[in-house]
Amino acid sequence: MFDLAYYQTLWPRLFSGFWLSLSTIIPAALAGLAIGVVVGTVRGAMFPRFLVAPLNAYVSLFRGTALVVQLFVCYYGLPQLAMWLKPFFAARGLPELWRIFYLSPYAASVLIFALCSGAYHSEYIRGAILSIKKGQFAAARALGFTQAQTFWNIIVPQAARRAWPGCGNEIVYLIKYSSLAYIVTFKELTGTAMTLANSSFRYAETFFAAGLYYLFMTTLAAWIMRRLEKAYAVPGFGRG
């Protein structure tokens, strides 16, 4: 029933998909983390309301809607906006800026994954900043630290340690939900597996192999995350 010979031919054939998945996940993870750090910091560190309110709206939007819907809006919806803008730009002889709304499947996927991941990261980071005791700020100010010095030397090292397990978890999620890119026609790991399975009718073998590729990625990511967590462990901060 399980065709082992066929199964073994899948590894090299799925590899291009695996590679494309990685090339989506890595930039999306890095950009997502960067977005999360900035947004989480602004939302957690008593910035003025006019900065916080739009970021709260961004987080609610990306946490509160289905990821597939976000991908559809970005990939299928934005070109509609482009068509609407096109005559407006043409009439005024402006450069064809509306073209940026025609995103490739790859660009749409990376963009949406980064924004979605950033919204979740920002929650972990906001929570970590809020969990820092008031006395830490008072002690830093009392020693003559400026606000920026307090932020970089006291808040960041503590918040990073608190947020890290949550952020690591989010990156593992990202690896798995990157499979949704195939829905906007991007031939990543799941998309490649789907094509192979449809032509061979060997669904079990194909998706089992794809699953193992995902398991490899998530295991590797979790291992790296744990190593970093251990390397920076401090007594009194969770682990250690």
Partner: peptide
Amino acid sequence: FQDFNLFDH
């Protein structure tokens, strides 16, 4: 300070 406020990290 009363509660020390050492930098925990």
